[in-house]
Design a protein around this nucleic acid. Structure first.
Lengths: 244, 244
DNA sequence: TTCTTCAATCTTGTCGACAAGAAAAATACA
DNA sequence: TGTATTTTTCTTGTCGACAAGATTGAAGAA
């Protein structure tokens, strides 16, 4: 809500100038990655228009790779493209927030369960690495880092669960919802209780012990806790902005 | 390059000639829809190469809209594109079959539950229409129609559940897995027991009665039955082709 | 002034052309 | 004869240009 969105034409030199030679197949990928980050970190405000030629000049390439990146982003629902008309950054679906966190919670549970069942040797190392990063982010009170590292943590768990379909869906949820998660974290004033870190530790322990029931219980607790907080957030939110 | 347009050298005249005027924004959509269908109905064999120029001449349009369609298909995992090299129809992931049906079964349960909770006035009508079509397809022993109408039936239930995220994931699973489902149905020799139709009826009844527990139980039964059949299918399959 | 109609402009969708990599073919070499 | 190297060909990735549709702005009528 208190977001400044400079989408202005060519201004700072941070990252628009790429006149230097880039590898052949990587144009669209580069644009895709950067735009995705800008959208998910709310640096591109929801609803703001996206101009292909502007992006083309900004990235110093033709409209074609830009277009490919936009098609991919549209496929993930991050931008919306009116036929023959402007394309814009998708709005955050506040009404679907409950549904979103319901799905997210279910994925927490399912992936944690499966990880407890199917994890193999190196999986726990990977999970622990991400947990350490998450812990550091929480201690540093860096909301963006918390979201990213939390997503990585759970993505690692999902990978250990050995189900590509859940993993892909989960990663997509974690990505697509980064903007909603941003609001969620803001409901804690970006200072996450250390309890969250502890819960992660318990989850790791349950997975390591291959205790499926404990894993499920923890995943469910994690999820229900989020649910409750979202409930608080939504009621508060409904009062603040009467949306449209 | 120069135009190499041999009249007789192409394939048959079934549906490649679209020199007639088409609406402006619909080129890619048209290609996407048709290619998707051809892939999912196994008319395009997994692993077979996809040539952009060939498609361009076949559809009578430039490579640009073809390319957009391919990007979208790749985003859904239906084709795989090696950088700077050929793109090909994705292989069916037999190893992930168990994972696939696990996810599918969970979605059966979740969406049925939610439909029992949240369905509104017109939802049941839509569901019943699709159920009637499914029944007709089963009686006609038309496997492709069974897959399509079954997908529509469950998609309608998912829509009644009022959770966009589950619905999208579910639809994606049902679409993406049409090829696997084809095999699954073939394990019944494309003659589905009428019990499947009856199960659908029970599901409808549970939803209408808003009996969440019954809905969940039925969804679970549906899912477990699939699971069992897949188990039989897989063991039989593992014995027949030693993959690779 | 306000509403309608038409022209200017802007953005997107599509096209043909060209260059870069890679695969296939042809040649040289042991 | 078999292998390494060069050349040819083929496919993809990128580009600039143009047309269609939509938006905006101006001009005209009430």
């Amino acid at each position: 809500m208190t977001d400044k969105n400079f989408v202005g034409a060519g201004m700072d030199d941070s990252n628009q100038n790429h006149a230097l030679e880039r590898k052949r197949g990587s144009g669209a990928r580069q644009v895709y990655d950067l735009l995705r980050d800008e959208i998910l970190d709310l640096r591109l405000a929801p609803g703001s228009a996206i101009d292909e030629v502007q992006l083309a000049t900004r990235f110093g390439m033709s409209r074609t790779p830009i277009r490919e990146a936009l098609v991919r982003l549209a496929g993930e629902g991050l931008i919306e493209t009116l036929p023959n008309r402007s394309t814009m950054v998708s709005n955050i679906d506040f009404l679907g927030m409950h549904a979103y966190f319901d799905a997210l919670g279910l994925m927490y549970r399912v992936t944690t369960r499966l990880a407890a069942q199917h994890h193999k040797a190196g999986d726990l190392d990977s999970i622990r690495v991400h947990q350490a990063e998450f812990k550091a982010a929480v201690e540093a009170q860096d909301a963006l880092a918390m979201i990213a590292t939390n997503a990585d943590f759970h993505a690692a768990i999902a990978a250990a669960g050995r189900n590509e379909y859940y993993a892909r869906f989960f990663e997509r949820l974690l990505g697509e919802g980064r903007r909603m998660l941003r609001l969620y974290y803001q409901s804690y004033d970006d200072r996450l209780p250390s309890r969250f870190v502890d819960e992660h530790e318990e989850i790791i322990a349950a997975i390591e012990a291959r205790d499926v029931e404990a894993a499920d219980r923890l995943g469910r607790a994690h999820s229900e806790q989020i649910e409750a907080q979202i409930e608080r957030l939504l009621t508060r939110h409904d009062r603040l902005d009467i949306v449209l």
